[in-house]
Structure formats: C-alpha cells, structure tokens
C-alpha cells in the first residue's frame, strides 16, 4: 500500500524532479565557471604584482645606464615613455577589465622588448657591463622577468580553462546570462636564452 503511494507520488511529480535535477546541474556548471573566472583573476593578480615590480626596477636600470650610454638616447627615452604608459594603465580604475587587460599586455610586451634591446646594448659598453650596480640591477631585472614568465604561463593556463568552460554549450549560455566574458591571453616574446654548448654538458 505504502509502496504504491510512494510510486504514485513519484510519478505525479516526475516533471518537478527533472526540473530540480536540471537546476542542480546548471548551478554546478555556473559554480564551475565562476571558479574558473576567479582562478584567472587570481592568476592575473600574480602577473600584476610582478609587472609592477618590473616597472619599479626600470628607473634604477635607467639611472645607471644613462651615465654610460650617451649614444642610446632614443632607446632610453622609449623605455621611459613605455614605463610611464604602463604605470598609467596600472593605475587605471578599469585596469582589471578584459579590454584594458589586453591593452596593458600589449604595452607591457613593448616595454619588455625595449628592455631586452637595452640589455643587449649594455654588452657594447664594457665599463657599464662590468659596473657592480648594473650587474646587480640586471640580476634583479632578470629575476623579475623569470617570475613574469612563470606567472604568465599560469595565467594563460587559467584563461584557457575559462575559455573552454564558457565557449562550450551550455557554458556559453550561462556565461552570457551572468556576464562572464573571455579574458585575453598574455602573449610575450620569450627572451633568447644563451645556447647550450655540448662542451658544457659533457
């Protein structure tokens, strides 16, 4: 008797259960998208800290370089201009919005390129190259660059996971409803590493 009553109750409310199941599924999907977006934002914060560190280190490098590199005025000015631009973008109230992030990454990439050129140019100035302060500044700069590279790889992995979640149905619908948008990848040129010599290994 009780068995029959339970069976009838279940049959009468089957639509409700399907709806409930669907709601739970959508919530789990939604929660997964939000988790991935937050992870990407967390990864972005990691890069942001390192990019700010780099911007803070540049004046030190420039001050030392200016004493010796009279012929590289244009390059030094370009680095100064890009650093100012980067700092302006970092302080922007919308700095963590997707469109601004993309713009920032572009400027940061330009700054990285110019700094790379500056570091290569240092090689042409023996006095500067052997200057203790310059050596220390270069080491600190290289350390930050390596941190940026690692943080960038983490950020791109997090962004990739977010994109997969919000581009595949029904993730795209849920993302559209709650306003989760794509975040840009951070593409930057890897600094050329000194070639490994077999004689160093064997």
């Amino acid at each position: 008797m009780i068995k029959k009553m339970i069976g009838d109750f279940l049959m009468d409310n089957i639509g409700l259960y399907i709806l409930l199941g669907l709601a739970v599924l959508l919530y789990v999907w939604y929660a997964s998208i939000i988790t991935k977006r937050n992870k990407a934002k967390e990864a972005f914060s990691g890069i942001d800290v390192q990019l700010k560190k780099r911007a803070d280190l540049i004046p030190n490098v420039l001050t030392i370089a200016k004493k010796f590199m009279a012929h590289e005025k244009e390059l030094l000015e370009e680095v100064t201009r890009l650093r100012t631009e980067v700092q302006k973008q970092q302080q922007d109230a919308h700095a963590d919005e997707a469109a601004h992030i993309k713009e920032r990454f572009m400027t940061e990439a330009q700054l990285q390129k110019s700094m790379g050129q500056l570091m290569i140019a240092v090689e042409n100035y023996p006095e500067l190259k052997s200057d203790t302060n310059m050596l220390e500044a270069q080491r600190a700069y290289q350390n930050v660059e390596e941190n940026i590279a690692a943080a960038r790889r983490f950020y791109n992995a997090a962004v990739n996971a977010l994109h997969n979640a919000i581009q595949i149905f029904p993730g795209n619908v849920i993302a559209g409803l709650v306003g989760v948008t794509e975040m840009p990848f951070y593409e930057a040129e890897e600094a050329d590493r000194k070639a490994v010599n077999a004689a160093d290994v064997l």
């Binding site: 080491r139 290289q142 350390n143 390596e146 490994v196 160093d200 290994v201 064997l202």
Partner: peptide
C-alpha cells in the same frame, strides 16, 4: 649518463639568474 648530465645542465641554464637572489 649524457642525458643525466643534460638534466643537470638544463637545471643550471634555466635558472642561472634566479640562483643569485633565491
């Protein structure tokens, strides 16, 4: 063993500057 030496050298090459500060 050449590969083992290469593993060791790739550790060094990758992090040559990291070493100084860390």
């Amino acid at each position: 063993f050449a590969l083992m030496r290469f593993i060791a050298s790739s550790l060094k090459v990758q992090q040559h500057n990291y070493a100084h500060t860390q």
